[in-house]
Design a protein around this nucleic acid. Structure first.
Lengths: 125, 125
DNA sequence: TATTCTGGTTACCGCTGGGTAACTACAAAT
DNA sequence: ATTTGTAGTTACCCAGCGGTAACCAGAATA
């Protein structure tokens, strides 16, 4: 899901977009936030993502230095994820995206009836 | 390329990601910046994008209120794009992504020989 | 007359992103 | 002896993303 051509650009911004410019990574980073979280928790909190894709995204985030992975040598396995310094430094950007969207979003919210079935990934709305 | 399920979320952040969370839109917004630009210019400045996808992305950006489209009734046609207030308000976020990436990017740049063939979408590196 | 220029749109088609289901290891609980 | 729980991995398969090429209008230029 990383765009390799973007990541190979000589432009820092293009590389950044190649790294985090997809729909799942900002969501995952936002869900994790400042806490430590286990794989199964992520899997249930982010319901529309499949196990396979979640694994893949987490692996990429770790490779790109945004995420730290702690695997305990236990059975059944236990793995914990938390943001690295780099990942934590990205959170303010996510916050400004939230503020930006709240301020400028034009589309009115659909009726209340629809709200119940809506997705909600936010730690804080 | 918009994720409709994300856009239908009751979470403002998720909706925002559904709207601008793909690789092309941040690139396009960054390329346009504060200037007014024609379709053909975008097509040549962003070389890896196909005409078809560029059209589609511009249309979505316009629908989402980030972009203003000015079509002159001429032949051959002339169409100009510029960021709306909402789009302009997104530029600082792109800037902070640049700063973030410059500060934390770990992967060393490949050798100079490779740089020449690299993509460069930045107005300012 | 034929070509060029611009900003698309459309048909066709191949690739692959991503979903589902099955499977793994092994300890602990029933 | 069987089930449960965790964190994946793998094989299989299909929808749809996105690339390519052709086509359009109609004025201006050669």
């Amino acid at each position: 899901m990383r765009d390799e051509r973007f990541c190979a650009s000589n432009c820092s911004f293009t590389r950044a977009i190649g790294t985090i410019g997809n729909k799942w990574k900002p969501i995952i980073l936002n869900v994790i936030g400042t806490r430590t979280i286990r794989f199964g928790q992520l899997d249930s909190i982010v319901p529309l993502i499949s196990r396979k894709v979640l694994t893949e995204q987490l692996k990429e985030l770790e490779e790109d230095g945004l995420l730290e992975r702690l695997a305990y040598k236990e059975l059944p396995p236990r793995v914990e994820y938390k943001l690295s310094e780099k990942g934590l430094a990205f959170l303010p950007i996510l916050e400004s995206i939230k503020e930006w969207n709240c301020k400028y979003e034009v589309a009115p919210m659909p009726g209340e009836a629809d709200k119940k079935s809506r997705i909600n990934y936010a730690r804080t709305v």
